[in-house]
Design a protein around this nucleic acid. Structure first.
Lengths: 134, 134
DNA sequence: CCCTAACAAGACATTTTTTATCCTTTTAGG
DNA sequence: CCTAAAAGGATAAAAAATGTCTTGTTAGGG
């Protein structure tokens, strides 16, 4: 339970690799994929998602590639994970009122809410700088 | 991400229902299923898992059915969830040494470990008595 | 202006997991 | 024995995860 998918793992590996590169080095997708051992086509999809929300910047054409959208210390693990896995929702109930028909009587509800908060807290407290190790 | 499956939801609903019953009332699976709005055949599988590890007791034949294996205050939500969803493992790495080849270099590892602990803590702090409301 | 390098985007295919259902077997009571 | 009820195994349908392929777009360099 609560397992990160491959996609999530790949996403983290890929962006942590970027974070570990010299500041404005532009990296080829193919190089990143090879370095972190992820299928290049799959990683492409992941980085496209990152690109859309500005987690990474991308350049096309000759000399193109990827680099981090912000400073590593300003990108949290939470952002990375939620970017590819969607919001952290341990239970459908947590989403919001109305989604859970047994809303009022549902005593489990607040428990999942707490789980959600705890997890988010941990992930929010870790930046790519931490993960890249300086 | 981190979403409980239907099975998990059903499991909780089912066993919380049991916990809310008078102490040694034996409940029919069909009644429980109807009450908590879960397919009876599916709930049967879930309760079989519960039964194997003693979370519930079952009796066959006429007058048979299910009741809680222990007092509601002695069964934690963690047990219930792990019984049907397996151990709480946010990331394959956390399982143990050797499972993750990039073990040593994996800076993400300890983060997931912390997530795991936080989640387990929350779920362990809630009992079926809490959930059944008295 | 064209050719090539590189990412973007969408459609498609495969595999695994989830979500069931059904049938047969076992156990127990009456 | 006959019926009630759970146990267990096999199977099936649907959804999600995982990956691939093809085509489009953008940019640089001769």
């Amino acid at each position: 339970m609560m397992e990160l998918t491959r996609k999530g793992e790949y996403a983290i590996r890929g962006i942590v690799y970027l974070a570990a590169q010299p500041d404005d080095k532009v990296c080829l997708l193919s190089d990143i994929a090879a370095a972190v051992d992820v299928p290049a086509t799959f990683l492409a999809k992941i980085f496209q998602q990152f690109s859309k929300i500005g987690l990474v910047k991308s350049y096309r054409g000759t000399g193109g590639g990827f680099l981090l959208g912000r400073l590593p210390e300003n990108i949290t693990l939470l952002e990375v994970v939620e970017a590819v896995e969607g919001p952290i929702i341990p239970n459908r109930c947590v989403v919001g009122a109305g989604e859970c028909t047994r809303d009022l009587s549902c005593t489990v509800h607040p428990v999942w809410k707490r789980v959600q908060e705890q997890v988010r807290n941990v992930l929010e407290g870790v930046t790519l700088k931490d993960l890249a190790g300086e």
